[in-house]
Every structure is written in structure tokens, then in C-alpha cells.
């Protein structure tokens, strides 16, 4: 469970948001929406402890978080294959039994993310969508209880987008995985999430997904 009370963040003199009050329950599939620069990425970074808050309180139950960041610097020369990239997130082990388990886990996750055929391709040469799938697969590796997707579907074609969202939905339903989905996509918000957190006027509104309108994705500032 995640609970924020009067959470405020400024970078120096620049106020990003103030007095956020919200609660995200275990097993929820929630979207986080709002215009560019409204503080979505900053908020999830604070949730993960990668960025500090300015004031207010924030309780995040201690659990594994999988994060698929919005930006990643993988250039054309990036050497690791897709499988080796995913494997970075494995813990070191001497135990042959654990290695066996790890290998099985990798195989399953690559199948689920449709990466099996591509596993030996250098990640630098993969397409934008293939990269996103690899990022997701890597984040799923340590079996997180909370999954944060930061615009992870933005560069995907419709079919792959749905495949990935279906997979995330399946994990959400089967294992009560909490999903925080940052997006600028109206259709996906409507189709997959039950509730939305909307950044507006430097604060956050909690909405039922039925109240989410197309207009909310069109406004600026």
C-alpha cells in the first residue's frame, strides 16, 4: 500500500506539486495522467526513493518494486544481447539449483514478453518496441509486488501495446501485482485501469476511470 499526505516537491525554487493526498491499494491497476512536465516521473521517483520529497509524508510498504523507466540510454553500440540485458537483474548465486531456477524464470519471462526468438540480438540493434519489452522483462525478473510503467507503451504499435498490457493485466489479476501506469493514452487508460490519478494545477485528483475524459489528455500546462 502507498499513502501520501500533503506530499510536496520543489526543485530549488520551482514548485512541481503541492499537498498531494492519495492512496494506492495493493493489487490496484491505476493510471497516473497529466500533461508533460506535471511531475509524473518525479512522483514515481519519490515513491521509489530515487528522488527526495520536499515535505509531507509518504508511506510505501516495504516491497519489491519493478520500474520501467521512461528513458534509458541504450545506444546503437550497446553490446549486451536481449537475454543478457534481462539477466543483469539476477542475483549472483553459487547454487546450481538456484541457477536452474533462474534459467527457467528467464525462459518463462522471455516467452511471455515474446522475446524468445530475439534473445541473442544485441539490445542496441533492437527496435523501440523490442527494447520496451526487454525493459519490462527485466523489471519482472525479481517478481515485484509493485510495477511502475513510465510511458512504456508510447513507442509500440497497437498490437504489441495490447499484448503487453494484456500480460500486465494478467499478472495484476493472477498475482495481485499493483500496477502504476503512467500514460498519455486515453484508450489504454479506459481499457485497463480502474482508477486514475490526474495531475492538475500542481496537485493530484483521484478519479474513477469513468470520470476520465478525452479532454484530460489534451490540455496543456
Amino acid at each position: 500500500m502507498i499513502e501520501a499526505k500533503n506530499l510536496t516537491k520543489s526543485f530549488g525554487k520551482q514548485l512541481i506539486f503541492k499537498n498531494l493526498n492519495f492512496r494506492i491499494n495493493n493489487g490496484e491497476f491505476i493510471s497516473l495522467i497529466g500533461p508533460n512536465g506535471s511531475g509524473k516521473t518525479t512522483l514515481v521517483k519519490i515513491l521509489m526513493g530515487l528522488e527526495s520529497k520536499t515535505s509531507g509524508t509518504l508511506n510505501v510498504a516495504k516491497q519489491t518494486i519493478g520500474y520501467v523507466p521512461q528513458f534509458r540510454n541504450i545506444d546503437l553500440d550497446y553490446p549486451l544481447s536481449i537475454e543478457q540485458f534481462i539477466r543483469l537483474n539476477l542475483k549472483f548465486t553459487f547454487s546450481p539449483k538456484q541457477r536452474q531456477l533462474d534459467n527457467e524464470l528467464i525462459t518463462t519471462i522471455m516467452e511471455k514478453t515474446h522475446l524468445t526468438q530475439l534473445k541473442n540480438r544485441p539490445l542496441g540493434l533492437a527496435s523501440g518496441g523490442e527494447k520496451q519489452k526487454a525493459y519490462l522483462a527485466q523489471a519482472l525478473l525479481n517478481e515485484p509486488k509493485i510495477l511502475i510503467l513510465d510511458e512504456s507503451t508510447a513507442s509500440l504499435d497497437v498490437e504489441v501495446k495490447m499484448q503487453l498490457m494484456d500480460l500486465v493485466q494478467e499478472l495484476n489479476q493472477k498475482y495481485q501485482l499493483t500496477v502504476i501506469f503512467i500514460t498519455h493514452d486515453y484508450e489504454l487508460t479506459k481499457k485497463y485501469t480502474k482508477r486514475a490519478l490526474l495531475f492538475k494545477n500542481k496537485t493530484l485528483e483521484e478519479l474513477d476511470v469513468a470520470e476520465v475524459s478525452k479532454k484530460m489528455f489534451e490540455m496543456e500546462g
Partner: peptide
């Protein structure tokens, strides 16, 4: 430090995200 160093060196953001 092989494993964590490799993770951080080949995917800094992923390593940060995984704590």
C-alpha cells in the same frame, strides 16, 4: 562486487530502480 557492478555499469537506471 561482480554482479551489482555489472548491473550498474551496463544499465544504470535499471540498477537504481532495483534498489
Amino acid at each position: 562486487f561482480y554482479k551489482p557492478l555489472a548491473f550498474d555499469s551496463f544499465d544504470h537506471l535499471g540498477a537504481q530502480a532495483s534498489g
